[in-house]
């Protein structure tokens, strides 16, 4: 999966849990919690969706590393690369 494809996966998952957002206007470098109203159920559904699309296992302890779209893409890319390598 290319970085652009992973970004699309993340934004699609975000749009599913928060349909009111405009995915194109999400700033990838800014904290998600400042841009999207996500409660714990939304966040769990977001994690489940990106896990289903990427097959990357995301331990609960790593949730804090997924603070922005860029962080999330970076995390997934790194784990997908280490899995395939």
């Amino acid at each position: 999966m290319t970085r652009a494809e992973i970004t699309a996966v993340v934004l699609k998952a975000l749009s599913e849990v928060a349909p009111e957002i405009d995915a194109a206007s999400v700033r990838p470098e800014a904290p998600l919690r400042d841009q999207v109203d996500l409660d714990s159920f939304d966040y769990l559904n977001f994690i489940v969706a990106i896990h289903a699309a990427s097959r990357v296992d995301i331990p609960e302890a790593d949730y804090a590393k997924l603070g922005t779209v860029n962080d999330t893409v970076e995390y997934l890319a790194r784990h997908m690369a280490s899995r395939s390598g």
Partner: peptide
């Protein structure tokens, strides 16, 4: 909760509620 969720797949994890 941390121990339980550590054993579970993403979609089977528990929220504190």
């Amino acid at each position: 909760l941390a121990a339980e969720n550590g054993k579970r797949t993403v979609d089977a994890r528990l929220l504190p509620i």
